[in-house]
Amino acid sequence: MELPNDKLLPLVRQYVAEGEHVIISVKGYSMRPFLEHLRDRVKLSPWTELQVGDAVLAEIAPGHFVLHRIIEIRQGRELTLMGDGNICGTEPCTIDDVCGVVTEYLRPNGHVLYASDKKLQKRIRLWRRLLPIRRALLFLYRLTIDERA
């Protein structure tokens, strides 16, 4: 069975706040190409410090959660989030809205990609710099995904 997000994500927030690490399935396409809808899972963990490039689950409005990446931190607590798979559109929030930080990317074949992996972090920075041509890159990515499906 699957718990709907409106029931699941407040629980995730609660458990992570209690110090648990929580694994959830990824839903949606807004974190392409790093996370794929219903294919990948992520481990969300408690955090002490956030950095640009971290993917976080945040409650950006009451009951409205997003799993997006931090692209800017101002004054240590004001954050701007953006989905890797989004062309435009960002979400402002604060560190208090962050429910957990992605520490592991779990692939269906059992492969675990750690958020601390230097190569991954390099790819994330490169992806951010390629924002001006992201639409075209995502189009090509969709073609490869569709072919595999």
Partner: peptide, 23 residues
């Protein structure tokens, strides 16, 4: 007991796996 439902979750290696839950 989650939201009034009896749900089995995998709880191992210090994490709770909500991607595999059974009611």
């Amino acid at each position: 007991d989650i939201c009034g439902e009896h749900v089995v979750v995998a709880h191992g290696r210090g994490n709770i796996d909500f991607s595999k839950i059974i009611s």
